[in-house]
């Protein structure tokens, strides 16, 4: 099944202040879009707006042609989920329970199950009965990504998933993104690490002051990464 998530002239507000000033972006199922930009440019707000976590929005977001709306859990049930930056696991539940609670939210015949999650993150398989709160930071990040994938979403948004992680964990996250894309999930990745973005991204969007100011295809980005790097440097 093909499809896309489309942001159409999205404005977002916290109270009186307008944070997003008309974001336009389309992310195809089975592709990875990297949202890049300096801090405070609206990357996280874009993701939060999609989950219904800002005070007010104008414009619209279409998910496979249907307008995304309603409370957060309903949006998740429509097929989109968010892995926020703070990687919060259900700390007092075991790793297994964390995974099971997410799997239970997916359709019964959904393809991605706990065995598949353990295949991507073998480390979680070794920690199944351990309380999730006792995992290391990198393991917790694996768990929240696995948890998001187990819902079997159509689209998955990752907010700086590798920040502060050791290289082995960064590699595990990269692999999980590849697997998710291979399974036809559309991914929006907010990432500070340009090397990781260049390794997995199909499209690159540069955000500035609540808008997307430049977009690159993978070929363009690989041809001149310096151009992107310049846009991401404080002048």
């Amino acid at each position: 099944m093909t499809g896309a998530i489309t942001f159409e002239n999205l404005h977002a507000f916290y109270g009186q202040s307008e944070i997003l000033h008309g974001v336009n972006m389309q992310v195809e199922a089975g592709s990875v879009a990297c949202l890049l930009g300096l801090n405070g440019m609206g990357k996280t707000t874009t993701l939060r707006a999609a989950m219904g976590l800002v005070d007010r929005t104008e414009g619209r977001i279409l998910l496979d042609g249907k307008e995304l709306g309603g409370p957060t859990f309903r949006r998740s049930q429509m097929g989109i989920t968010l892995v926020p930056e703070d990687r919060k696991v259900f700390a007092n539940l075991s790793v297994r329970e964390n995974l099971e609670v997410a799997r239970a939210m997916a359709p019964r015949d959904a393809a991605f199950d706990i065995a598949a999650a353990v295949e991507i993150f073998p480390r979680l398989g070794e920690r199944m009965e351990q309380k999730a709160g006792t995992l290391s930071g990198g393991e917790q990040q694996m768990l929240v990504v696995a948890r998001a994938m187990l819902v079997n979403p159509r689209y998955m948004m990752l907010d700086e998933p590798t920040e502060g992680l050791a290289p082995t964990y960064v590699e595990a996250i990269r692999q999980s993104i590849e697997v998710a894309r291979g399974r036809g999930i559309g991914i929006i990745l907010v990432e500070q690490s340009l090397p990781l973005a260049l390794a997995v991204g199909d499209h690159f969007h540069i955000m500035e002051n609540g808008q997307i100011v430049r977009s690159f295809t993978r070929a363009e980005a690989l041809a001149e990464p310096a151009a992107i790097e310049r846009l991401l440097t404080v002048s």
Binding site: S76, T81, M105
Partner: peptide
């Protein structure tokens, strides 16, 4: 009980 917001992210009402 653990985290209502994260529960919503995975589709829990």
């Amino acid at each position: 009980r653990e985290n209502a917001e994260r529960a919503r992210f995975i589709g829990i009402d």
